[in-house]
Computed example of a mutant assay.
Amino acid sequence: MRLTHALFAVLALSACAPASTQPATTQKAAPGYPVTITNCGRPYSFTAPPRRTVLMSGGAVGQVSALLALGLDQQIAGNAQSYGTSDVPGRQAAIDRLPKVKIQQGGFDISRETMLSLRPDFVIGTTSYDFDAQNGYATRDELAAVGANSWLPNSTCGKTGTINGTQTIEDSYGMLRDFGKIYGVSAKAERLIAESKRQIAAIADKVRDEPKPRVMYIIPGMSMGSAEFSSIGGNGIWNDIFAKAGAVNAFHGQEVFLNLSKEQVAKTDVDAVVIINWRNPDPDAEARKLFAEFPQWGKKYVVLSDSAYLGPDNAVAVERIARMLHPDRF
């Protein structure tokens, strides 16, 4: 599969569009409201919890997972996010039950016309690509004009594909806090965050004094550049996940995904591989293929999907990687 530059970054990172104006409203504030969040440098005010949320795809799934973890499925009027699988039992089935949004043929996300027909009061995107008029999508200003606030992850605000530092697990917590405040469920968001922190701290403590294996993060079969290996994770939330699991990224780099030749990959020492399953019919076969190509690496790997991205379930990824690398500590 080949993705455009604008789309590929959203598989792991979320960039923010230029800030838009706030929607004008005369609605009487609900109890506990109004509330205001700052998103991509601009304040957005809410007089009540959103009732008609639409989630754009951008190749992501962490935002819809966060809403489901917070018990907000009834507020979702349309969802375009799905990997077709999840590391959390029952999560994919819950996503499948949500109202689906049809994406126009040949497009990557919800068109402007489709979006406006859904009458959203809140639109959640993944990168600025999702709100770019040149791509055929409603802009944040256009949404504001019809009374819909919008949101993008603050961790990489800027134009699509840019990185302001490395995304970390704290950015997942930031998303949960934003949604908790917007929907009036901050107490539940803080409970989810506290439990995640407790789980991750316990795992990190188990592996603290262990050697740090060098791990590759790869989405097999996905082409994001011209080189043979263009879906190797360089700079993303996975680096923080690896660190908490007692490992380091063998291919750490400044770019979100690295564009490497087979020779460059072969020269790198790799102790284990994290195979990311994004709509892949047989990720284990992809692992076997990779190890046949690089037999010097051994055969240690784990398959993950949504827990390895921005979202509410990073503790799952930390634990599964740690158990794969340091089984004697569990």
Rank of each mutant, 00 (worst) to 15 (best):
R2E: 14
T4C: 02
F8I: 09
A9V: 12
A17Q: 11
A19K: 11
A19C: 12
P23E: 02
A24R: 14
Q27L: 13
A29D: 13
G32Y: 08
Y33C: 00
T36R: 10
T38N: 15
T38W: 10
G41N: 07
S45E: 14
P49D: 07
P50M: 09
R51C: 05
M56C: 08
G58S: 09
G59I: 02
V61I: 13
G62M: 02
A66I: 03
L67H: 02
L70C: 11
L70K: 05
Q74M: 06
N79A: 06
S82Q: 00
S82F: 00
Y83I: 02
S86A: 14
V88C: 04
P89T: 06
A93M: 08
A94F: 06
A94D: 11
P99K: 03
K102R: 14
I103T: 09
I103L: 02
D109Q: 01
I110L: 01
I110E: 03
S117T: 11
T126C: 04
T126G: 09
S128T: 05
Y129H: 13
Q134R: 15
A138G: 04
A138K: 06
R140Q: 12
E142W: 10
S150A: 15
S150D: 12
P153N: 03
T156M: 13
C157N: 04
G158K: 03
T160Y: 09
G161A: 12
T162G: 07
T166R: 15
T166Y: 06
I169C: 04
E170I: 01
S172F: 03
Y173T: 03
M175V: 15
D178M: 10
G180K: 08
S186P: 06
K188Y: 03
A204M: 01
V207P: 08
R208V: 11
K212D: 06
R214F: 04
M216S: 05
I219A: 02
M222L: 14
E228W: 09
S230C: 09
G236S: 14
G236R: 12
A250V: 00
H252K: 14
F257Q: 02
L260R: 11
L260C: 06
Q264W: 05
D269M: 10
V270Y: 05
V273R: 07
V274Y: 01
I276N: 11
N277S: 13
W278A: 12
N280C: 07
P281A: 09
P283Y: 08
K289Q: 13
F291N: 01
A292I: 02
A292D: 15
E293T: 15
G298K: 01
V303G: 09
V316W: 00
A317C: 04
I321P: 00
L325Y: 01
H326Y: 09
D328H: 14
F330E: 05
